[in-house]
Design a protein around this nucleic acid. Structure first.
Length: 665
RNA sequence: GCUGCUGUAGCUCAGUGGUAGAGCACUCCCUUGGUAAGGGAGAGGUCGAAGGUUCAAGCCCUUUCAGCAGCACCA
């Protein structure tokens, strides 16, 4: 955020022309403040103003304006207000912390999505108990209603000042500010901090709808080789109501946590001996199979052929693909030696001469399939799909339920095609992805174009061509996208599809990656129309990304209440009395023979108890069977979260359940 | 991997140096009950692991493993 644009000091008199958002223009004396201007509109607006936006730049209400421009008065309801409020709150927190813990050094404290943080350097870590005290102190500072005052200092003075105070991190920050920028300081009462601004007029205007959330470690300047700082996270909002609804959203996210629901619903578990790999239980695996069956159909319809490739391959293979050089730290490597069976001694009798690695990606293996026999231009585009089980040696701290695992299955495919087919294949992929996301209940997503990273293979000319290719496909589809520089894979640029879930969180899932490098490295060729040998282009693509992760996301998106066709148990047939057992059994048989996932509950419990238990377990359909139904060949259906129940003939009920549990076409 | 926090019954958790607890789940018995918890009884724990302090450790100390949050990594 920049301070007000300023002209040179010789232009301090005369008049300037200020335009307003409604198009009106008025003249003011040079050096007028945003507050003065707001005052001329209405005193109440001036009172409400927390900043002004001049020519698109936010500045303090009290900053003098030296040049012509368009002005917006920023009040609490303005879209930029929250960022300012959060940044102010961070400053107030920093003062509170230094009042309570004088040995603490301040570093940086920006506004972030949903709140703010401030990183401190202190020998003793903060505890969550400290947060309450800090909050109380912050409320005192707000009650004092100190003015935020901006000052501009000479660089040397600022360095001297902070060095004398022992604020060595601030000194480093000042020294890293480009030479032509002013050093601005904000003062609030006796406390001050290096800051670009802007700030609200005074600490009393920040508002008290804030809460300190948690404490965590964070590296100075995000560098794992530099000191670990103590970061305090807080959240701040315009109103108490907004704060409450944010806290409620967090509770909702916790309630939906797939690790918790997965346990409750008996879907899967994780255990120490297999960190980062999933034990799928029958019910969780039922979801997997339903999803995979659906994807197989979609892939087949889209012209893909399914393959399966080896799990363990020689290191020479990975050297050729480039993974050994660029990706090895993420791979599991196994020595190709017979283990020692003696109870004592070394695990291996001899030092290994050869190594095998578990595949972290499927791409090089698919190239091998492409290379078998001679391919013609008539074979292109050749689309090879695999539900490929990959292993990646992720850092312990990175593992997280199903969302970040070490063994995962990609809905992977590689399209081998000519350069002139790239556009068409990208377009087809984007359309397929959109349709699958829609079937699975994700209508909102954004696309990012991720370009060349620092660690990469291939010439700059190839990268230029690849990045341009993806961008053209997007433009042809008329899809909105943003560019994310340096985030591409080491072999090529990519499009990333980022979905938004039911409570607004974003997840990167689908991807299509353009690759001119691997076909060359692994020497893939086809025979062109003129008989010459040509390199195919390779498109790496996945719709869901990792199936494990996707199921985790779906559990949270649906809070466990998956669409009927994906539900692990679709119907529970529950009896009211033993007299109906035989009839109930025959219904379950009928359901199962129609491919419906049905269970039978004959337990000696009252029907109210059974209904409650299966409802809590999120069973979408309950079939209630009493003596009456057994006698009349009927079934009572009760759908989850619907009050009404339906009494249907057996045939009608079965037909209805079949229709409701059908997989999308 | 780094920083902090946590680790007690299948699950959720209580237990601040002196004989391990609750609710739910589980097993058995009674009950055959018509739409979100019927009643009774029982079983279940090397208190994450190893070492130490102490007459005495779930509790204090050290080491270690794992989980959680964030960072870094990754997509």
């Amino acid at each position: 955020m920049l301070q007000c644009e300023q002209k040179s000091p010789d232009q301090i008199s005369g008049e300037i022309i200020i335009s307003f958002p409604d198009g009106a223009q008025r003249q003011f004396n040079r050096g007028v403040t945003g507050f003065d201007i707001a005052q001329t509109i209405s005193p109440s607006l001036a009172k409400r103003a927390i900043a002004v936006k001049l020519n698109g730049h936010l500045c303090d209400v009290m900053a003098p304006i030296w040049c012509d421009g368009t002005i917006e008065i920023v009040d609490r309801d303005h879209q930029d207000a929250l960022g300012i409020i959060r940044h102010d709150t961070a400053h107030i927190m920093a003062e509170a912390v230094q009042m309570l813990y004088p040995q603490t050094q301040v570093t940086i404290g920006p506004a972030i999505e949903n709140g703010f943080y401030y990183d401190f350097y202190r020998e003793t870590p903060f505890s969550t108990d400290d947060l309450k005290q800090i909050e109380d102190k912050m409320r005192e500072i707000m009650a004092r209603d100190e003015k935020f005052v901006r000052e501009e200092w000479e660089r040397a003075d600022a360095v001297q000042f902070f060095r004398d105070k022992g604020e060595l991190f601030k000194v480093e920050l000042i020294e890293s500010i480009p030479g032509d920028e002013k050093i601005s300081i904000y003062r609030q009462g006796n406390w001050l901090d290096l800051c670009r601004g802007p700030h609200v007029p005074s600490t009393g205007k920040v508002g008290t709808a804030f809460k300190l959330m948690n404490v965590a470690g964070a590296y100075w300047r995000g560098d794992s080789n530099r000191p670990m700082l103590q970061r305090i996270y807080g959240t701040a909002w315009r109103t108490q109501k907004d704060l409450d609804s944010y806290l409620h959203m967090l509770e909702e996210a916790e309630r939906r946590d797939h690790r918790k629901l997965g346990k409750e619903m008996g879907l899967f578990h994780l255990q120490d001996e297999a960190q980062g790999s999933v034990f799928w239980h029958p019910k969780g695996w039922a979801i997997w199979i339903a999803l995979e069956t659906y994807l197989r159909k979609r892939l087949r319809d889209a012209g893909y052929q399914e393959v399966k490739t080896p799990q363990l391959m020689d290191s020479r293979f990975w050297e050729a693909s480039g993974h050994w050089g660029k990706y090895r730290e993420n791979m599991f490597v196994v020595p190709d030696v017979v283990p020692n069976t003696d109870e004592v001694g070394k695990i291996f009798k001899e030092d290994p001469k050869k190594f095998l690695a578990l595949k972290p990606m499927n791409c090089p293996a698919h190239v091998q399939i492409f290379k078998q026999g001679i391919k013609s231009y008539r074979d292109l585009p050749l689309r090879l799909a695999e539900f490929g089980c990959c292993h990646r040696n992720e850092a312990h701290g990175a593992l997280h339920g199903l969302l970040r695992v070490r063994q995962f299955t990609q809905d992977d495919a590689h399209i081998f095609c000519r350069e002139d087919q790239i556009m068409d294949e990208c377009v087809k992929f984007c359309e397929l992805t959109k349709s699958i996301y829609s079937d699975l209940g994700f209508e909102n997503y954004v696309i990012k174009l991720e370009t060349r990273p620092e660690k990469r293979i291939g010439s700059d000319e190839l990268w230029d061509k690849a990045e341009a290719g993806l961008e053209q496909a997007l433009q042809k589809l008329g899809m909105n996208y943003t560019i994310s520089p340096g985030d591409g894979a080491f072999y090529g640029p990519k499009l990333a599809f980022i979905i938004r879930d039911a409570i607004g969180r974003e997840w990167g899932c689908g991807t299509i990656q353009l690759d001119f490098n691997l076909p060359e490295r692994l020497d893939a060729l086809y025979t062109a129309e003129d008989g010459s040998r040509q390199r195919p282009v390779m498109l790496h693509r996945a719709v869901l990304g990792s199936i494990e992760r996707w199921i985790g996301i779906m559990i949270e998106h649906y809070a466990g209440k998956l669409p009927l066709w994906l539900a692990p148990v679709q119907v529970v047939v529950a009896t009211i009395t033993d007299a109906a057992n035989e009839y109930a059994q025959s219904i379950v048989q009928d359901l199962k023979s129609r491919g419906i996932r049905a269970e039978l509950d004959l337990r000696n419990e009252k029907i109210g108890y059974k209904i409650r238990e299966h409802s809590v377990a999120k069973t979408p359909i309950l079939a209630i069977i009493g003596q009456k139904e057994a006698e009349n060949d009927q079934i009572v259906l009760r759908y989850l979260s619907q009050e009404d129940q339906l009494t249907l003939s057996r045939a009608d009920a079965l037909a209805r359940i079949s229709a409701d549990t059908k997989m999308p076409e």
